[in-house]
Amino acid sequence: MAEIRIRNLHKQFTDFTAVKNSSLVLEDGKFVVLLGPSGCGKTTTLRMIAGLEYPTSGQITLDGDDVTYLRPRERDIAMVFQLFALYPHLGVRGNLEFPLRNEGVPRIEIDKRVEETAAILRIGHLLDSSVNGLSGGDRQRVALGRAIVRQPKAFLMDEPLGTLDAEFRELMCVELRKLHDRLKTTTVFVTHDQNEAMALADHIVVMDKGEILQADDPHGIYNFPATLFVARFIGRPPMNLIGADAPVVPGDTSVRIARRNIAVPRVDATSTQVVLGIRPEHVRLCGSDEGCLGGRVKHVEYFGSHWVVEVETEAGALKALADKSARPEQGLQVGLRFDTRRVVLFDAGTEKLLASETTLAHQPGMRHG
């Protein structure tokens, strides 16, 4: 196991900046997910940790050792790619043995590790099979096995579930998490899928345009988004974001929305352009005559356990959750009531979270900056 530190990591490709002066501590034995849209810099960051790309500037340490410009084979890491990268001319056993033979591990130790790894991944019955006829899920297990058998200080995984169908992805998420809980090896996992990130991660690092926007545990990422981008990117449906009618100053406990005062956690900073954020599950329908924010039902989606209701209001289109037992009719006049304990405020200019009593209750789970 090993702690990975990146300090002021920067990667420039001619006139394109892929990663911008990023610093982060990936704690020993944690499952860390790099999450963000295509082109955000997450894979480039992973490749620099692996040694497949060298940074333009900055430093990477693994277990206290500077590995910034070491070759991949000198870093004691193992990588799993989206495309399984198995050797088709070797069987399952041959693929598992290959990295150990390449390192000159004695035959008796190779046999021991291969058997142990096959037992962990439940592929012992496939050891004498060809990899060409395996299902996608089994091929991914073999790819994972080839990494595990080396017993590295860290696993690096670049969207390893991306080619699997939805059912297999869910299954492999569960299996990967169980595997990590058993091995306790530092793991860095890249994905653009927030469901994978939430299911797998001890810590999530959200990136956009080459920058780390927030590094925290899944609870913190979901409930206390540090920027408007994180608020929009995390959550299905995403957080409702509503522009306030008036500025706020330290000590304020309400904001003006559509000519109504909406209670919010105490504000600790001045902002002339305020955006109120609240998750749809913290918005409830009420009678249009109950003093709530009024609107008309525009669209309804069924999710089995609940309805997601889109309501057109004076403040814009907002989404709320409704109980599965009653489908709100399109065109119905309704009111919306916010759980004010769950409200977060952003500054529209900086797009950053404004300090409040709500955020003070949460201690971030990672270090970055």
Rank of each mutant, 00 (worst) to 15 (best):
N261R: 12
V230L: 03
G287S: 11
M239I: 01
I204V: 07
Q82S: 05
V300M: 01
S22N: 06
D323I: 14
V308S: 12
P238A: 10
L126W: 06
P328M: 10
R177P: 07
T14D: 15
T358L: 15
L321I: 02
D216H: 05
E97H: 04
Q273F: 13
G349E: 05
R337F: 09
A263I: 15
A118F: 04
R367N: 13
K319N: 07
S271V: 00
S130A: 11
E357K: 08
V255K: 11
N195E: 13
G137H: 05
N102W: 13
T14R: 09
S57I: 08
F31G: 08
D128G: 10
V249D: 15
D63Y: 03
R139W: 02
D28L: 09
L26N: 04
G291R: 08
P99W: 10
P280T: 08
D181E: 13
G365F: 03
R101K: 15
L332E: 14
G162M: 03
H203W: 13
M79F: 07
D202N: 15
V33P: 08
A258H: 12
M239D: 02
T270S: 14
R341T: 13
Q12M: 14
H180M: 05
F98Y: 10
H282G: 02
D217Q: 07
F81S: 11
L200H: 06
R113Y: 01
A355Q: 00
H362L: 12
L83T: 13
